[in-house]
Structure formats: structure tokens, C-alpha cells
Amino acid sequence: MEQNHLSAAEMAGFIDHTLGDEVRARAAEHLATCERCRDEVAACARLAASAPVKRSMPVVWRAVAGMAAVVMVAVALRSTWNRGSPLVGERNVAAERSSPMTSRVRLVFPTDSVSIARSDLHFVWRRDVRATGYSLTVDDSSGTQIWTREVSDTSFTLPDSARLAPSKTYLWHVDALHVDGSTAQSGPSAFRIAP
């Protein structure tokens, strides 16, 4: 990396702080001496920071969620001040809200495109500490939603009424529903119904 310029993946990872410590240190070492890469990382960081935000919720609900978030922060700060340590609470709330990488639901099973008998199909995922409920969705491989339901637990057995065809591949994902109206999403995971 000392001689070669940063790859696109390394540069994006440096901006997002998602590189491992060793790789990030090597990238920093290169950037400290390479004007061209520093130019690029500065320009891309600016672009990423000013990028248009996806419209994931209707405007009204975004406004409601925003107000709810403000109230939540105020309540959190007040309770923290009462404990005599305002900065810690403030930083935790801010960090939690500003870190899309950490607010994520982890799927446990089925994953890795496993082939599984329909009768053994039982979805399991990790708990999100801020969740008040979860939305479980199953899509077919073309992305068409074939089943969805809101549940309160972190596991669920698909009812027989949800018909999944043998030898077909499906995707499932879970959205954690937070009290402030925001959601944390899992990535999708694939599984296949055994013939």
C-alpha cells in the first residue's frame, strides 16, 4: 500500500471507519504521504456526507419520528443528568443514532443458502435492545414478498398456510421496530426448501 494508491474499497472503508485496525493504519500511512489519495479521500468524504438521503418513510412519519427522537434524547439526557454524568449518556445516544453499522439485526437461522425441510423451517435472529417488536418478511428469489408478519419474539415458526415450494430459493429478513419510529434492518438471507 505504500507504493500503490488506495483501492476504491480501501478508500470507502477508510471514510466509513470499517477497515480493520491494521489496514486502516496502513491506509493512514499512505495518505500521510500521498497528496493524490488525500485529495480523493477528502472529495469523496464530502460527497458521501452531502449525498441525498433515501426516502424510506413518508414525510409525515419522518417528522413524527424526528420529534419522537428529540423527546427520547431529552428524556435520556435528563435521566443521565440526574445521575450526575451527562456526557456519557449523551454520547451513547448520539453514537447509537449515528452509526448505521451498529444498528442492525443479526439473522441466526436459516442462513448461508442452506437447504432445509419445510417442516424444520424455524426462523431465529438476535435481539435488538431497542426493539419493541419485529417484522419478519419472506420473499421469493425475484424479490416478490410472499409473507410478512409483526412478531414480538426473536424466533418464529412459519405457519403451514405460508406455502413454500420445494426446490425453490427464498429470502428472509427482519426489521426491528423501535419506539421512536425508526427501524434497524437485517440483511437478507437465503434458504432453500429441500425437494
Partner: peptide
């Protein structure tokens, strides 16, 4: 290649590659 080894958010990677 990105999907094989994602080291960042897709949007950040798209910014770098797109630029």
C-alpha cells in the same frame, strides 16, 4: 467484487467508484 468483501457501506463505495 464488492459483494464478496464489503469493507464499507455500499453508498460510500459507490461514491468512490462513481467519482
Amino acid at each position: 467484487e464488492f459483494a464478496t468483501d464489503p469493507r464499507s457501506r455500499l453508498s460510500t463505495w459507490l461514491v468512490v467508484v462513481g467519482r
